[in-house]
């Protein structure tokens, strides 16, 4: 065994020890943590900084800290659950040509994401 193989094994073993996370419940309930996982999995965090979402430190779009208190979505829609779900699922229909692309998010996922964003005060 070469030194680099040994080093790789030691690193992997180290990773294993810290990589064990609990699997979240998969039923589409209204547990806000489900929304945080979806925000991370759909990659929202590569453009937005979102407190409590893994890896969400993007600076392409605005930060979503304090989102529950934000008055407007995209500077035009009142910030309410149904509007936010529409915006998450189909921003291009609300603001044609916006930098935020349409992503394949279904209704249950959009709801879970919005529920999480409304925990950010």
């Amino acid at each position: 065994m070469t030194f680099s193989e040994l080093a790789a094994i030691v690193l992997l073993l180290g990773l294993a020890g810290v990589g064990c996370s609990r699997s979240p419940a998969m039923e589409p309930d209204r547990n806000p943590q489900q929304g945080a996982i979806l925000l991370s999995a759909h990659g929202c965090g590569s453009c937005h900084t979102i407190p409590g979402v893994s890896g969400a430190s993007g600076t392409i779009g605005p930060p979503l800290a304090g989102y529950a208190r934000r008055a407007y979505i995209a500077g035009k829609l009142p910030n309410q659950l149904d509007n936010l779900m529409r915006w998450i699922r189909d921003p291009q229909s609300i603001e044609p040509g916006t930098a935020m692309p349409n992503l394949p998010v279904n209704e249950a996922e959009a709801r879970a994401m919005a529920v999480y964003l409304y925990t950010l005060r």
């Binding site: 600076t59 392409i60 930060p63 304090g66 208190r69 934000r70 407007y72 500077g75 040509g97 916006t98």
Partner: peptide, 18 residues
């Protein structure tokens, strides 16, 4: 809280998404 926070503004890519 009406509009977005302007924190780390120099790092922001877009203004109003346009």
């Amino acid at each position: 809280n009406v509009g977005p926070p302007l924190t780390r503004w120099a790092e922001r890519q877009f203004i109003s998404g346009r």
